[in-house]
């Protein structure tokens, strides 16, 4: 096997894994936006909380699998609380007010994280079974990246099942494309909103746990990955899950190959891509024009 090919494949794996993480985070963001019309600026902070909770649970139990289950659930519950006791009670300024409120929530989370865990980078180690490389067809793959990809695919499958096979999913899909319809059907909207917000933040939490071992856990995490997720949602089009998936993977690959071939330009590539898309289609690739 030529070394070039090996390089390409390993870069592609990196890109794919990062793309999957981006998808987990941006899926929650776009779901919440599509359903509730809320652009959750605090979403990146919830994502970061996932990573910190992962660290915390891991240091308490010593078991990565437990934290993979527990940490996102706590994040999701926090999300539910925010929806129930803050967002739902807010009536001033419509969506702009909601946006500003999530800014406040994000700041409080960031401040709290610094108080509880300090500002240093915290290490998260993965269990033995996920360490090292695995040989497949003559090539070596880092197991943890494969694990991330598999995890994201499993969650994607679960999401697909919920969205397309359950009544709740039908309501959510309906609401994303037409908010009026939900009112018309007489569905308990507040409960559905709370569920969606909780689910969205749970996804962010899963993303946080997934990256904890590869990126270090530190307070700048929310800006780093969170911003990428925002760019994904803008580029894909608000509220489009399919778009978020495709664009996440494109961006994941773009960033890993970008670092390889045009290291200086790599951070700008995503934004460049976004700018071009928006110049051609202001609502995003899969967004519906008003």
């Amino acid at each position: 096997m030529e070394s070039d090919t090996v390089l390409y494949i390993s870069q592609a794996m990196h890109g794919l894994a990062y793309g999957m993480v981006l998808f987990l985070v941006s899926a929650g963001l776009t779901l919440i936006f599509g359903m509730m019309g809320i652009l959750n600026i605090a979403h990146a902070s919830f994502f970061m909380l996932g990573a910190y909770f992962c660290y915390q649970v891991l240091s308490m139990t010593g078991n990565f699998w437990v934290s993979l289950i527990v940490a996102p659930v706590i994040v999701g519950l926090l999300g539910v609380l925010c929806e129930r006791y803050l967002l739902r009670k807010l009536h001033a300024y419509g969506h702009v007010g909601e946006l500003l409120l999530t800014v406040g929530i994000g700041m409080v989370i960031l401040g709290s994280v610094k108080i509880f865990w300090g500002t240093e980078s915290l290490p998260v180690t993965v269990p033995q079974i996920l360490k090292g490389l695995v040989k497949l067809g003559g090539l070596e793959y880092p197991i943890y990246r494969l694990f991330i990809i598999a995890l994201a695919l499993v969650i994607l499958a679960i999401m697909g099942l919920i969205l397309y096979k359950t009544r709740l999913g039908m309501i959510v899909r309906g609401a994303v494309s037409d908010a009026e319809m939900v009112n018309a059907l007489g569905i308990n909207v507040p409960a559905v909103f709370m569920f969606v917000f909780g689910f969205g933040t749970w996804l962010a939490g899963v993303g946080g746990v997934a990256v904890a071992p590869i990126l270090t856990v530190y307070p700048g995490l929310s800006d780093q990955v969170g911003m990428d997720a925002f760019v994904v949602v803008v580029t894909a089009g608000f509220g489009s899950l399919k778009g978020a998936f495709i664009v996440s993977i494109i961006f994941g690959l773009l960033s890993s190959f970008g670092v390889q071939f045009v290291p200086k330009l790599a951070p700008v590539l995503m934004f460049g891509f976004m700018a071009i898309v928006l110049a051609l289609k202001p609502a995003g690739i899969f967004g519906e024009t008003e």
Binding site: A92, M107, G111, K114
Partner: peptide, 20 residues
């Protein structure tokens, strides 16, 4: 404290919720 953002964040939330 060095954690000014938590204070400003809380103020922002309180103002939006109760004194828009």
């Amino acid at each position: 404290t060095e954690r000014v953002e938590i204070v400003t964040g809380l103020i922002l939330i309180l103002v939006i919720m109760f004194a828009p």
